[in-house]
Design a protein around this nucleic acid. Sequence first.
RNA 1: CGGGGCAUAGUUCAGUUGGCAGAACACACGUUUUGGGAACGCGAGGUCACAGGUUCAAGUCCUGUUGCUCCGACCA
Length: 475
Amino acid sequence: MKNKAITSRNEDFAQWYTDVVKAAKLADYTAVKGCIAIEPNGYAIWEKMQSILDNKFKELGHVNVQMPMLIPENLLRKEGELVQGFAPEVAWVTSGGSKLLDERLCIRPTSETLFCDYYSTHVKSYRDLPMLYNQWCNVLRWEKETRPFLRSREFLWQEGHTIHATKEEALEETKKIMDVYVWFHNHILAIPSITGIKTNKEKFAGAEFTLTNEALMYNGVCLQAGTSHYFGQKFSKAYDVKFSNKDNKEEYVYQTSWGTTTRMIGGLIMVHSDDYGLVLPPRIAPKQVVIIPIGSSDKVNLLVNDYKSKLDEAGIVSYVDDSVKSPGFKFAEAEVNGIPIRIEIGERDLENDNVVFVRRDTREKIIKNINDLDIVTYVKELLEFIQNDMYERAKKRRDELTFEAHNIEDFKSIISKTPGFIKADWCGNEECEVKLKEINGIKSRCILENEKCINGKCAICGKEAKHLVVWGIQY
RNA sequence: CGGGGCAUAGUUCAGUUGGCAGAACACACGUUUUGGGAACGCGAGGUCACAGGUUCAAGUCCUGUUGCUCCGACCA
């Protein structure tokens, strides 16, 4: 039976999304507009994302730090493009206690400026480089329209800021991190994505270029999932971050920054979940298995405890739902919360030495004979299978929603249905980007550097094309 | 910042011509239950968003304010 609290996905996608967030108790609205309360179920997903990424960053030599939440106005204004990019959406602190401040402080929308300021006094020699810093923190951007996880004013993220002695090293870092994001999205979140470079119009304010990983939601809307920026010496010149190189010559550092956010929780929902609630890929699910005893005979309890302790030992995260609720309630709750595997153990099946497994993603019931079953091996295999199956399904959906456009009419007809990734040739001229956006709100997602143009003609103006670009409607 | 909608119990809402503040779900307690959101009984829960006005009488009518939400433009 469909969950009564959840609007059907095909009926109203936006409402369905909000309903899943609330029904699965991931987050809720608060007294502050645009700032959500991330509830235990939602925060557990974020913690798992953090731990996986954090380990990866550390393997690559990064260390964590914490910078202030407030940025003095003059510091923010040193790099012109960054200020222009973020000025419309920063919040200001203008007084402390009862005293008006001489210089107002901005609440960080991103921390390039603070890292640069720090680096400027802490780098002396090429021997100090590279400095590979990352911070997990919250930032604030005064968005006008807000939605839980996808666009909140305050959000949690990770921002890496690195400085290097050479251009080559910084370029390599930019790419290396993008590889981490791609791996994370594909392998952990089971979200197939495309990777490319942002156009000048869409790149990060102040960056020389931005690498981006773009995901496609079930409804065909694009989501920018992770970005990695190469700054060259732009910021180091603005903030005077210099070092002495091997020839004892003063030189500006080469810099990168990169980040991913709690928005990906929203992405997980919009790629995988359904009308019954949340669906999580096993590798990111905070709880992978739920065991639901039905009735409470000794025989039932014995098997429940046996399975639970074996799963614990194998490092599979499971829990037993032995609350006083009815079995039906527990099934429904496990379902709405997206627990990948449900094990039902009741008297009726035990009579035939059977035990029931239910996959959350497909809701398929699998009956196994207890005597032929090695619980740990089976659950491990099933988790692995679900992970891959979910990825393949998401990939199929993405491929179905990947189109080619040869002219503006093509764009129009594609987005009149379910949109998606729209591949089209582009002349490289910003005017064409602007024109397309004005006509139907389509923006460039990224340039596919390694793919050839379709027919060599810009789909918007018809002139000679320079790049194959993926276009789409974005969150 | 423009355009809609909403505001009454924890939640979703009903509340007639202005006349005792209501239901369902959730919650507490009790009993019986337990294979897809259990049944019955009993109970607690309210500054009707805020301010002002009309009236013998306002949740209801009038004026203003605030908050939330949806749709656009801005954006991870």
